[in-house]
Nucleic acid binder design. Sequence first.
DNA 1: AATAAATGTTAGATTAATCTAACATTTTAA
DNA 2: TTAAAATGTTAGATTAATCTAACATTTATT
Lengths: 217, 217
Amino acid sequence: MGSLTEENYIKTIYNLSLEPGEVSVSELAKKLSVKLPTVTSMIKKLSVKKMVSYAPYQGIKMTEKGKKEALSIIRKHRLAELFLVKILKLGWEEVHEIAEQLEHVNSDRFYNRIDELLGFPKADPHGEPIPDVNGKVVSQKSIPLSQANVGSSVKISAVTNDEKLFLDHLNSKGLQIGDQITVKKKEEFDGSVSIINKSRKETMLSHQVVEKIWVEL
Amino acid sequence: MGSLTEENYIKTIYNLSLEPGEVSVSELAKKLSVKLPTVTSMIKKLSVKKMVSYAPYQGIKMTEKGKKEALSIIRKHRLAELFLVKILKLGWEEVHEIAEQLEHVNSDRFYNRIDELLGFPKADPHGEPIPDVNGKVVSQKSIPLSQANVGSSVKISAVTNDEKLFLDHLNSKGLQIGDQITVKKKEEFDGSVSIINKSRKETMLSHQVVEKIWVEL
DNA sequence: AATAAATGTTAGATTAATCTAACATTTTAA
DNA sequence: TTAAAATGTTAGATTAATCTAACATTTATT
Ligand SMILES: [Mn+2]
Ligand SMILES: [Mn+2]
Ligand SMILES: [Mn+2]
Ligand SMILES: [Mn+2]
């Protein structure tokens, strides 16, 4: 366990490493809202601690140690989010911010009890998988809504962004995890998608939205 | 809301201010495990922020603003402790440490929901009063066990220390909040007290212990 | 009242995390 | 294949929170 700041870097690097391509200093700087030299200096520190491997001008790669640490933080974050929704009855759009704080609480007893209380859940309120105590993740096979075929009926399994602004948008469209929807039309021009929602109403979703909604057949 | 460090100073100053006498720099330094100059420098900062009033070589006094802030942190701490015991089924001896972290979580929604879930409780697992949303505290009229008369039958209403070492000690003696006990004998020499516990067994408690157990008649 | 002990303050250094300005390397595009 | 743009690094400054060493004040004890 490093400092709160170190934990945030590790978690962010891990999340970026899941996307295709190298993890770059500028990408990290953007995500963490800090300047480039701040990242360079922190990366060096994390490199000394063997959380990442790094050589100047090369990308940033996580070590096994770093991945383990990242998964532990992500586990805490997602357990916290589900707890906030299931036990404290908060909305899925407001829990991420609180989980950003709770993920840094250092107590295995605390998180294992929450896990137990929730019945050892496999996914958080946004459909993202919750790593188990050993950092093992069970990932589902699903695709972004942007890639679903016109005419297909699919189930929303996850959203890959859990910030309030995005989720408030989905709330306003009446979309939830688990909803069965049908792809009506895909616009070539801007990548937007029209769907038929649970209540048989047609709704238009922009490209930025449909690439963040994951569905299964 | 200041930094985590500032919050810890404010809470500690407030707790010390409830004991008789001035709050001194050395007392604070001891409680926070920092050196004297560290305290002097932080007090100056808190003084600029109007959380305490301070003049060199005089004691430290809290302002109304500071008290309000302290009570908010203490409310969060005690709600967290009760939540950990009641909902997560942790022991009263292990919750203080976790609450030291949770008390810094910044979310009214989070704490108000916990308050609600617990039924707007009046006391934490150690019998200490929980300030309400407005910082109002309902304190009970009780006395330290060290001052109870020989022969009197009293009920344990609170303990004024919630660290593991102390509570493990009480656990080993089988003592809990709410227990009815009888004062059998008080030793003039060392201030120790013999009591008859709930299960009619006689137990000897040292002065350091009986001054931290509060009872009502 | 003088001295010693305890307590508190000031000065200056250190560490973590950040910044800006200047410089270096890599990538993209004439 | 050079010039420009983008990306990354180094150097040096800043702020928060801490420390040690030296000095000042207050309190206690002869
Ligand atoms: Mn989240
Ligand atoms: Mn989530
Ligand atoms: Mn406590
Ligand atoms: Mn308590």
